[in-house]
Computed example of a mutant assay.
Amino acid sequence: MPTVEIADLKDDDFLLDVREDDEWKAGHAERALHIPVSEFMARFGELTEAAPQGGHVYVICRSGNRSARVTLYLVQQGVDAVNVDGGMQVWQAMGRPVVTDDGQPGLVL
């Protein structure tokens, strides 16, 4: 499965956060698209509309397990998807910004 380390992500990379609503509300990457894994199949069209044409979709969750499942599904659908190793836990530990919907500092549940 394609995987990327947090340190290798650029600020303008397209990030898909598949954590559940309570996790997202507590804190997330600022420009990420949020589609919870529990709603992913029903909301797949949102991703195809938002994702950059010909670019990677970097999939992230709390630790990398849920995002790995979504990444495998996306790859099977022909999407250039990459799992973010370590997820939001590593994101926060590396000092990357975590914010709430109103732009305030957030935290990773």
Rank of each mutant, 00 (worst) to 15 (best):
M1R: 04
P2W: 14
P2R: 08
T3R: 09
T3G: 07
T3Y: 09
E5D: 15
I6H: 04
I6L: 08
A7L: 02
D8E: 09
L9M: 06
D13G: 11
D13M: 00
F14N: 00
L15F: 01
L16W: 07
L16H: 03
L16R: 06
D17T: 06
V18D: 05
V18P: 05
R19E: 03
D21K: 06
D22I: 12
E23C: 08
W24G: 08
K25H: 15
E30L: 07
R31C: 08
A32H: 08
L33N: 01
H34Q: 14
V37A: 13
V37H: 02
M41I: 04
G45A: 05
G45H: 11
G45R: 05
L47Y: 10
L47M: 01
T48R: 03
E49M: 15
E49Y: 12
A50L: 07
Q53R: 11
Q53T: 13
G54C: 07
G54Q: 08
G54D: 15
G55N: 14
H56A: 11
S63P: 03
G64V: 03
S67Y: 03
V70K: 02
L72F: 06
L72D: 15
V75A: 02
Q76M: 08
Q77L: 13
G78K: 02
D80E: 06
A81R: 12
N83G: 01
V84T: 13
D85H: 13
G86A: 11
G86L: 12
G87S: 01
G87K: 08
G87T: 02
M88K: 09
Q92S: 07
Q92F: 06
A93W: 11
A93D: 09
M94D: 08
G95N: 10
P97Y: 14
V98F: 02
V98A: 01
T100I: 10
T100P: 10
D101H: 12
D102E: 05
G103Q: 04
Q104M: 04
Q104E: 13
Q104G: 13
P105W: 03
G106M: 12
L107P: 09
V108C: 00
